[in-house]
Simulated assay, not measured.
Amino acid sequence: MDPMKVEVKKIDELFRLDGYLKPFEREIRRRHGVLREWISKIDQLEGGMDTFSQGYKHYGLHFQQDNSVIAREWAPGAQQVYLTGDFSK
Rank of each mutant, 00 (worst) to 15 (best):
Q44F: 02
D2F: 02
D66S: 14
S68R: 04
Y20E: 07
R26F: 05
G60R: 03
G60N: 10
V34R: 07
M49D: 03
F52Q: 01
R26Q: 06
Q54Y: 05
G55V: 00
L14V: 11
P3L: 12
G19H: 01
F63I: 15
K10H: 10
F63V: 12
F87T: 13
T51K: 15
M1G: 12
E73D: 10
M4H: 02
R26S: 04
S88E: 15
D18M: 12
K9F: 02
H32A: 11
P76D: 11
G33P: 00
G47D: 04
Q54G: 07
T51F: 01
D2I: 13
E46D: 14
K9S: 09
I11E: 04
R16M: 06
S40C: 05
S40K: 14
G77K: 04
P23I: 07
W38C: 08
D43Q: 14
E37Q: 11
E25D: 13
L61P: 03
E46P: 00
I11D: 01
G85C: 06
E46Y: 05
V69A: 15
L61Q: 08
E7F: 11
G48E: 13
W38T: 00
N67K: 13
K10C: 02
R36I: 04
R31L: 12
E27L: 14
L14R: 05
R16V: 13
R36M: 10
L83T: 07
P3N: 14
G60P: 11
Y56P: 00
K89R: 15
G33L: 02
L61G: 03
F24C: 05
L14N: 03
A78S: 13
K89C: 07
M49N: 03
G55N: 04
H62G: 02
P76C: 01
Q65L: 03
M1N: 13
R36H: 10
L83M: 15
A71T: 06
F24H: 10
D66R: 12
E13V: 15
G48Y: 08
S40T: 12
P76G: 11
L21P: 09
Q54P: 00
H62T: 11
F87W: 03
M1H: 05
S40Q: 09
I39G: 01
V81M: 12
I42T: 02
F52L: 01
R26C: 04
R16Y: 02
I11N: 04
T51Q: 14
K22C: 06
G85M: 03
H58P: 00
K22L: 10
Y59I: 08
V34N: 10
V81N: 09
L14W: 01
Q80E: 12
V69F: 05
T51P: 00
K89I: 14
R72W: 02
L45Y: 05
E73H: 02
F63K: 15
W74P: 00
P23N: 07
I42K: 00
A78H: 09
R29T: 06
R72F: 03
P3I: 03
V34F: 10
Y56K: 09
G48D: 15
F87R: 08
H32E: 14
F87P: 08
E46V: 03
A78V: 05
I39K: 06
F63W: 04
M4Y: 02
Y82S: 15
L21D: 05
V69Y: 06
G77S: 11
Q79S: 15
L21N: 13
S40W: 10
L61D: 06
Y59R: 05
I42C: 02
Q44Y: 03
S53W: 12
L83R: 08
I70P: 00
F87S: 14
E25T: 01
H58K: 13
K10W: 04
L61I: 14
